[in-house]
Computed example of a mutant assay.
Amino acid sequence: MNLPKVVTDLIEAQNTFDSVAYANCFSESGVMLDEGKNHVGRAEIQKMIEESNKKYRSVMKPLEYTENGNLSVLSAECSGTFPGSPIILKFHFEIADEKIQHLKVTD
């Protein structure tokens, strides 16, 4: 599977529970929508991922990736200490200048 470097970096950061590296995949004003909540900016994204890592210890295994211009979708099997693990989630990216501008996570 041929993934952009920023997506590979995001997966690696998630799988090593590195919230700083995860947040650094985003532009300074990047937005992440997860579990119905918007998280805006690297600091807020880092805090959310840090809390999520402590609670769920979730890791990602990429399954499929499609791309259309600066929009792309990654399907990944996510497993951790949450009910229903593992599950398949879709990560809807908007990428510009090798940084994530917007990420929406759906099931």
Rank of each mutant, 00 (worst) to 15 (best):
E67I: 03
A13E: 00
V7R: 02
D107Y: 14
A21E: 08
L103H: 06
K55S: 11
A76N: 12
P62K: 03
K5R: 14
A96E: 14
T16L: 09
S29W: 08
N15T: 03
V40H: 12
F82W: 10
S29I: 11
L74A: 07
D9A: 09
K54N: 06
E44F: 06
I49A: 08
K54H: 08
I11Y: 02
F93C: 12
L10F: 12
V6M: 08
P4E: 08
K104G: 04
P62W: 03
P83D: 15
K104T: 12
Q46P: 07
A43W: 02
S52P: 06
E28R: 03
E98W: 00
L71R: 15
F91E: 00
A43K: 12
A76G: 14
H39Y: 14
N2D: 03
T81V: 13
H102D: 02
D9G: 12
I87T: 08
Y65R: 09
A13L: 01
M48T: 05
E35M: 15
L89T: 05
K99C: 00
V73C: 11
E67F: 01
T81Q: 13
K104V: 11
N68V: 13
F82H: 09
T106S: 15
N53D: 15
S85M: 07
D9N: 15
M48V: 06
M60F: 10
S79Y: 01
A23M: 10
A13H: 01
E12C: 09
S19K: 14
L63D: 07
I88N: 11
N53H: 15
T106D: 13
R42S: 07
I49Y: 02
Q101R: 14
G84Y: 03
Y22L: 12
G69N: 14
A21H: 05
S27T: 04
S27Y: 03
Y56I: 02
K5I: 00
E77I: 01
A96M: 12
I87S: 05
L3G: 02
S72Y: 09
K37G: 05
D9V: 01
H92R: 05
S72E: 11
A23P: 10
F93S: 09
D97F: 03
V20H: 14
